[in-house]
Design a protein around this nucleic acid. Structure first.
Lengths: 165, 165
DNA sequence: TGACAATACTTCGTATGCGAAATATACTGT
DNA sequence: ACAGTATATTTCGCATACGAAGTATTGTCA
C-alpha cells in the first residue's frame, strides 16, 4: 500500500467534500449576517430556479401570471431527487419563502410558487451569495477556476450526474 | 440581476456540492459491490488515518502495540468536528470496525483502535476506493486535476478550513 | 372499459455533519 | 488544597440528502 493515497490533502474526494461543507457553512453565516436567516444554503438551488423563471416571465412580458414550477422540474434544476425535494419545500414553506399549489391540469402535481416575502429577499440573498463566493474564491486565478469547474463537470458526467437540468 | 449567476452549471458551489454527493454515492455502491458493505463513505477518513498509523508503527518496528488514536486527533485528521466524530465512531463501533478504549493517562480521552475485522478489510476497501476515484476522474488531464486540487485547497484556506491535520 | 404501466409526490428509515450546551476530568495559580 | 480555567467527549436539536416503498392519479392498450 502506498502512503500517498492515505494523505487527505492529496485526495480529491477529501478536498471536494471538505470544500462543499466549508462553503455551505460560509453561506449559512453570510445569510445570518445579511439578515436573511430564513434562507438556508439548501434553498439556493430552488430559489435561483424560481427567480430565473420570474426574470424570464418578465422578459417575455408575462406579468402577473406566476404559475409556479412543478416540484420535479425544480428538483431537476436544483440537482435534487424528488424525495429530497419534499423536505426542502416543506422547510421553505415553513419559512414563508414559497407555497405549494395544486395543479389544475394534473392532480398528482404540486406547483411551487415564490411568495412575496421570497421575492423580496432576492436582492439581499444574491448579494450575500456573490460576496461569499468572491471571498471563497479569493486569490484564485480565474483561468484555474475555469479549469476546476471543467474538472468537476467531468466528474459529474463520470458519475452519472452530468445530465441534470 | 445577471442571468449567468443563475446558471447552476456555471456556479462553483453547485458543481462542488453535486460532485461531493455524487462521488459519495459511488463509494457507497462500490463498497457494497466489493462485499464490504459495513464500510460507509464517512468512515474513510477515520480508516485511512488508523491504517496509516498502523503502517507507520510497522515501519518503526512497533509490532503488537496498537495504542489507538484519541478521538480528537482522529477528527482533525479526517476533517471532522468532535461532535461529528462521536456519531461516526458510534456507527463504526456498531459495524465492528473499531473500538473505543479508555486512556490510562487521561480519563477524559477515548482512544480509538482498529479491530481485526477493520484491519482485514483494508485491502478490499483501498482497491474499491482507488477504482472508484479512477472512474470518477476518468478522461481528466492529470495536470488539470492538479489545478483543480490546488483551487480546492485555496478554497479551504479562504473559508478557514485550510489548517487541518 | 378495465387491467396494467407510468408518473408525481410523500413517507420512512438511515447516513452525514454541525454548533451550543452539558459532563467529566485535568491543569494552574495562589 | 481550592477556585477557576482549559480540555475531551457526548448529548441534543437541527439541516441536509438519498433510496425503497407507499399513495394517488394519469395514460395506454387490448
Amino acid at each position: 500500500m502506498n502512503f500517498t493515497s492515505l494523505d487527505t490533502k492529496d485526495c480529491p474526494y477529501y478536498l471536494i467534500t471538505r470544500a462543499s461543507l466549508s462553503i455551505t457553512a460560509e453561506f449559512k453565516k453570510a445569510f445570518i449576517d445579511a439578515g436573511v436567516d430564513s434562507v438556508k444554503p439548501a434553498y439556493l438551488g430552488v430559489l435561483m430556479c424560481l427567480w430565473k423563471e420570474c426574470c424570464l416571465d418578465e422578459a417575455l412580458g408575462k406579468f402577473g401570471a406566476p404559475g409556479g414550477i412543478k416540484l420535479a422540474d425544480l428538483g431537476r434544476c436544483a440537482g435534487l431527487e424528488p424525495s429530497s425535494m419534499t423536505g426542502v419545500i416543506d422547510r421553505m414553506e415553513r419559512d414563508g419563502l414559497v407555497c405549494r399549489e395544486d395543479d389544475p391540469e394534473d392532480r398528482r402535481v404540486q406547483n411551487v410558487r415564490i411568495t412575496d416575502k421570497g421575492d423580496e429577499l432576492r436582492g439581499k440573498v444574491v448579494s450575500a451569495v456573490d460576496a461569499t463566493l468572491k471571498k471563497a474564491m479569493a486569490g484564485i486565478d480565474p483561468e484555474k477556476l475555469e479549469t476546476a469547474k471543467e474538472v468537476l463537470r467531468q466528474v459529474l458526467i463520470n458519475t452519472h450526474r452530468g445530465n441534470m437540468e
